[in-house]
């Protein structure tokens, strides 16, 4: 029982990071209408930017904060260079482009920072005991930060004018355009929001694991699973599904040979889609 509770806690932490990437993926789906394979590698770039900034400024908090800004700019730049011109192309063209972007980013990261393992200079501490559960300060940081970011994105989507415009473009692009919504501005806002999500996700991932050029790529598959599970285009669904994927894989590790735990996420995915073909919380 204690093991199970702890597994749920571990799953929450991993699920929070999956949820951040999945939320970004679902927004790109909703507005730009394609599966962004580069999502994981964009996260990796921000994680490494934070590493370099920390070696310059020393403080991790300042480095991470600045890396989120720089990382978001990188994401917008990638949009401007790679995706903007293909806006009217088929989703397949955009998908293939994003695979190319992913490979290019990974090569650039390896070139600049090397392939050897690196880590942020953070104190390593024994975890805090909360009843039967033990959580580290990093875990708390991950849970708090991701909650704040998700809440901010939620408020933006549902309480601001650009959020309403964004959802309008996602639902009925033609109707939105004839209603006078500037779809270009909506798309840029979406990429900024996605940039924030991947940057925060990448840095949290770097804190939890250690930095390698495959950091973000390794979590991309569960993030795609969460996007589908939550119902494509559903922000709340993506975050919820991220946590479902995280917790179910950790619990599965207890019941099954842990080598198969990632497969369990996809069994859950298949089961839910049989029951609700459009996902948990389809838009």
């Amino acid at each position: 029982m204690e093991l199970a509770l702890q597994a749920v806690a571990n799953g929450l932490v991993v699920g929070a990071m999956i949820g951040l990437l999945a939320l970004g993926l679902t927004m790109v789906f909703g507005i730009a209408k394609f599966a962004n394979v580069a999502q994981g590698d964009l996260a990796t770039v921000s994680a490494y930017i934070a590493l370099t900034l920390q070696s310059v400024v020393g403080s991790f908090v300042i480095a991470a904060g600045s890396a989120i800004v720089v990382g978001t700019l990188v994401v917008v730049a990638v949009y401007a260079v790679a995706f903007r011109r293909l806006a009217r192309s088929s989703p397949v063209a955009l998908l293939v482009t994003s695979i190319g972007v992913a490979l290019a980013l990974r090569a650039i990261v390896s070139l600049i920072w090397g392939v050897r393992l690196q880590a942020y200079d953070l104190p390593i501490a024994r975890g805090m005991v909360l009843g039967p559960i033990r959580l580290t300060p990093t875990d708390f940081g991950i849970l708090m930060t991701s909650s704040v970011v998700v809440a901010a994105i939620y408020l933006m989507l549902y309480r601001t004018r650009s959020g309403i415009e964004m959802r309008a473009v996602a639902d009925e692009p033609d109707l939105a355009r004839v209603s006078g919504i500037n779809s270009r501005r909506v798309i840029i806002t979406m990429w900024i929001a996605n940039g924030l999500l991947v940057s925060v996700g990448g840095i949290l991932l770097g804190m939890k694991a250690a930095l390698t050029p495959l950091l973000g790529w390794n979590i991309l598959l569960p993030a795609f699973a969460a996007t589908i599970l939550g119902g494509i285009g559903s922000p709340v669904g993506a975050v919820t599904a991220g946590i479902v994927v995280g917790v179910s894989t950790e619990l599965a590790a207890l019941l099954l040979n842990p080598a198969y735990k990632q497969a369990v996420a996809f069994i859950v995915l298949a089961a839910v889609l049989l029951w609700r073909p459009r996902g948990l919380l389809a838009a």
């Binding site: 093991l3 702890q6 597994a7 571990n10 799953g11 932490v13 991993v14 990071m17 991932l205 939890k208 694991a209 495959l214 390794n218 979590i219 950790e250 590790a253 207890l254 842990p258 080598a259 198969y260 735990k261 990632q262």
Partner: peptide
């Protein structure tokens, strides 16, 4: 365990 995970705590 399967490798390339962010955490192996369980």
């Amino acid at each position: 365990y399967a490798d390339n995970q962010p955490s192996y705590r369980t």
